[in-house]
Nucleic acid binder design. Structure first.
Lengths: 232, 232
DNA sequence: ACATTATGACTGACTGGTCAGTCAAAGTCA
DNA sequence: TGACTTTGACTGACCAGTCAGTCATAATGT
C-alpha cells in the first residue's frame, strides 16, 4: 500500500497462460517440457508455497523471498504470475476456494434423511477442511479479512452466503419433515455451523493444550439438533 | 545518564520512586500533575492507542509511529513503558484481559435455574465483549495466536480453560437438574459457546454484508439446548 | 520563602537492517 | 538464431529501536 511506483505496472497478471493446455491436471502432465506446462507447474508451486507461508506468518510478515525459495524459483518469477504481493494474496484465496466450491455445487443431489445429509456434509468438512491446509486458510481469512475487504467479500459471497443458504434450506426441510423441532433454527443457520468453525480455530490455536475430537463434537452437536440417537 | 540499554528493561510505572516523600498529602488523587500520575496517564493512552492500531492493522503491519501519534506521545516514550513491539503486544493482551477475568471470578455466586445463569452469562458477554473493542481483541488473538504462542497460552490458560470448566460445571448441573437432556454436552462445552464466538467473528467480518442479531441467535441456541420456551 | 541543583520523563532526528518491486543479463526452447 | 523466460543483484522506501539533549518538576540549600 502507499506504493506509487514509477512507470506502469507490469503488463502481465496473466490468467492461465495460453491455451487450454494448462488445465488443472497437476502431476499427471506427462513430460513437463512444453512451456505452458512448465509455467503452470511453476505457478502451482508458487501458489502452494505462498499459501504455506501466508498461513504460517500472516500477510504482512511473509517475505516474497521466502515464498520464492520454498517454491524453488527466483523472486522475479513470482512477478511473472502475480501483479504484487497484495493481489497475489487475494488471488490465492480464490485459487484455493473456487475448486472446493465448484466441487460442492456439482455434487450429486443429496438424498436420505436430513440428518444423513448434514452428517455427510460434516464428515466431508472434517475430511476436506478441518484436517487440511484449508482449515488454516479459514483462520487466515478471519485474521486478514478486515484488512482485505476484497477477500472478505469474496469469501462471504462464494462460501458463507451459499453455505448459509444451503443450510437454511436443509433446516427448513428438516422442520417440514419433523426431523427438527426448533423452528427458529432456520433463522440462524450459523448455529448449525458454529461448532465446525470453532473446531477449526481450536485446532490451530489450542490443539497443543487440549486436543479436540472434532468428529465426536460434531456428532454430539447433531444429536442436540436432531434429538439423541444411539451412541456408536 | 538516562538509558541503561541492558536487556532486562523493567517497564513499569514506578510507584513514587523515592522513599517517604510521597506521604506528604493524604489525598494522592489531587491534580494529575505529579509525575507518577502523568506517567500512568500516558501509559494508559499508549495502551489504548496500541490496542486500536493492532486491532485495525494486525501486529506486523502496525507502526509504532502511528501508535505514538495516536497516543499523543513521542515514539521514544513507548520504550519507557514497554521493552519492544513484541512484548508490548503480549502485555497488551494481558492488560485488557486480566481485569475482565478478575471481575468475572469475583462475581457474586450465581443463582437461579441453569438456563437463567447461562442467559445472564450470555447477556453479559453481549454487553461486555461482543459489542466492544474486546470482541475485536478476540479476533486479534485468533489472528496472531499462532505467531505468539505466549499470547495463545495465556489466553488459553486464563480465559478458555476457565470458561470451558465453568461451562462444563454448569452443564453438569443442568443435566443433574433435568434442565438439559443431552448428557454428552458436558463433554463438549465448546458447543455451548460456539455461537457466541461465531457472532463476534461474524460482526467484524460480515456485518457489512449481513448484520447478525447476536442476541436473538444466542436465544435460539439456548432454546435448542434447554428446550423451547416461548417466543418473545 | 526563594534560589539553586538534581532528576528523569520525554522528545524526535538518526541508524541500521529489511524487504517489495525492478530490470539488465543469462538461460532456454523451438 | 531469435523470441521468450527466468534470474538475482540492486534500489529505495520504510520502520523498529536508539540516544543525546531538553525541560518541567522535585529535592535541597540558604
Amino acid at each position: 500500500m502507499t506504493k506509487k511506483p514509477t512507470t506502469s505496472a507490469s503488463p502481465n497478471v496473466r490468467t492461465t497462460a495460453k491455451g487450454p493446455a494448462a488445465a488443472a491436471g497437476g502431476e499427471v502432465t506427462a513430460i513437463a517440457s512444453n512451456r505452458a506446462a512448465r509455467a503452470a507447474e511453476r505457478r502451482a508451486a508458487i501458489v502452494e508455497a505462498a499459501l504455506e507461508e501466508f498461513i504460517a506468518r500472516g500477510f504482512a510478515a511473509t517475505r516474497l523471498d521466502d515464498i520464492a525459495k520454498r517454491a524453488g524459483v527466483a523472486k522475479g518469477t513470482i512477478y511473472l504470475h502475480f501483479k504484487d504481493k497484495e493481489s497475489m494474496f487475494e488471488e490465492l484465496v480464490r485459487i484455493v476456494i473456487v475448486p472446493v466450491v465448484e466441487r460442492l455445487t456439482t455434487l450429486p443431489p443429496p438424498t436420505g434423511s436430513v440428518r444423513e445429509r448434514v452428517e455427510a456434509f460434516a464428515s466431508n468438512f472434517l475430511k476436506e477442511v478441518a484436517n487440511t491446509r484449508r482449515g488454516d486458510l479459514v483462520r487466515l481469512i478471519v485474521a486478514e479479512g478486515p484488512r482485505f475487504p476484497a477477500v472478505a467479500d469474496f469469501y462471504y459471497r462464494e462460501v458463507v452466503s451459499r453455505g448459509i443458504a444451503g443450510m437454511r434450506a436443509l433446516i427448513e426441510l428438516g422442520i417440514a419433515r419433523g426431523e427438527i423441532q426448533q423452528k427458529n433454527l432456520a433463522r440462524f443457520p450459523q448455529i448449525l455451523v458454529a461448532p465446525a468453525m470453532i473446531a477449526v480455530i481450536w485446532q490451530s490455536l489450542f490443539a497443543r493444550h487440549a486436543p479436540l475430537d472434532a468428529q465426536e463434537m460434531l456428532r454430539v452437536h447433531l444429536d442436540l439438533i436432531f434429538g439423541e440417537r444411539r451412541t456408536t
